[in-house]
């Protein structure tokens, strides 16, 4: 379920980084409030736990075996907020050091496996295992929670991949990123998850939760606190993310004069006067008084100038604010 680099467009990756930044911030603050000073080692060890759990092969009835993603089990064990952070840490470690999942797609992977799996897995488990459940109901609750959670995450991955041909295509209509439309991506992703990876996740999570409860129930999250902010955050993300994914045209606030005229019927006087005054050092990547040079050469010179400016800025920053 880890989306590698190159499968999602930079715009999609940007949307997910923008969506995940407040989630990571809020989840870390929430975890900090609940877990106090113990928070960091516990989150790190929780992440290490889920990292190792993903390596186990789980035997299924029928003789086959597979890996679990671990989002639901870590949320049930540590709580939803700590689960999001722990799962994000495990995914970051896999992406940076092992190449499992991309660096550009890290936020999208965290959204699918840390946010969707943790929140839905934890919420469904709490709803089904209310009160004082017996061993059977607890096993059932954990299995259903993990099964639904992994399939929701798989559906999110399928939608993200399936939307790429709509979002980015070359001049000849050729897809630039994941090439399959929704009509292919959704069944291709969902069929194996509904019939194989879902049962693996369900069996693995239910076994671990039941065994941990039997061995030492104090290790499982107690379920204190309201889940209301969690559902509000998820609802907002659910509404905003597809909107960001399918949005086309100029980003909000970056309109040109023509677009403004079309949008509101007039161009503000200040913008009319000053808006086009500054055209940048290299307007439209064309260096002045060099029009005689071939276009690729001008382009490379523009890139050289840009990189030289960037290095100068880094140098100045390093000198002025050396840490």
């Amino acid at each position: 379920m880890h989306i590698p680099d190159g499968y999602l467009s930079p715009a999609t990756c940007g949307v997910f980084y923008a969506a995940m930044a407040p989630v990571w911030y809020f989840a870390s603050k929430r975890a900090e409030k609940v877990l106090k000073l113990r928070e960091m080692p516990l989150l790190a060890l929780g992440a290490a736990f889920v990292f190792v759990i993903m390596m186990f092969n789980i035997p299924l009835p029928g003789g086959s075996s597979g890996h679990m993603a671990g989002g639901a089990v870590v949320a049930i064990a540590l709580g939803p907020w700590a689960g999001i952070i722990a799962m994000s840490l495990a995914l970051a470690l896999q992406a940076f050091l092992f190449g499992d999942g991309g660096i550009m797609t890290l936020a999208a992977n965290c959204f699918n496996m840390a946010v969707i799996m943790s929140l839905s897995g934890y919420g469904i488990y709490r709803a089904l295992a209310f009160g004082e459940p017996g061993a059977g109901r607890r096993f059932f609750a954990a299995a259903v929670a993990a099964y639904v959670a992994v399939n929701l995450a798989a559906l999110a991955v399928a939608v993200e991949l399936g939307m790429q041909p709509l979002l980015a295509a070359g001049a000849d209509g050729r897809p630039l990123y994941a090439p399959y439309p929704l009509s292919i991506a959704v069944p291709a992703m969902m069929i194996p998850h509904l019939f194989f990876f879902g049962p693996v996740e369900a069996v693995g999570t239910a076994l671990v939760v039941s065994y941990v409860h039997w061995m030492d129930r104090g290790l499982l999250h107690k379920g204190k606190g309201s889940l209301k902010p969690l559902w509000i955050a998820l609802s907002v993300l659910a509404v905003l993310t597809p909107a960001g994914l399918i949005a086309s045209g100029t980003p909000w606030g970056e309109w040109g004069k023509d677009e403004l005229m079309e949008l509101i019927g007039y161009v503000p006087a200040g913008m009319e006067k000053y808006g086009e005054t500054w055209k940048g050092f290299v307007p439209d990547y064309s260096l002045p008084r060099m029009s005689g040079l071939p276009e690729p050469v001008i382009y490379m010179l523009s890139a050289l100038l840009g990189s030289a400016l960037l290095v100068a800025a880094v140098y100045a920053w390093g000198r002025l604010w050396r840490r």
């Binding site: 960091m40 080692p41 989150l43 790190a44 060890l45 992440a47 290490a48 736990f49 990292f51 190792v52 390596m55 952070i85 840490l89 495990a90 970051a92 470690l93 940076f96 050091l97």
Partner: peptide, 13 residues
């Protein structure tokens, strides 16, 4: 936290 995760993933593995 990521560094601690890396360090203790060894122990758990």
């Amino acid at each position: 936290a990521l560094f601690l995760t890396f360090r203790y993933a060894f122990v758990l593995i």
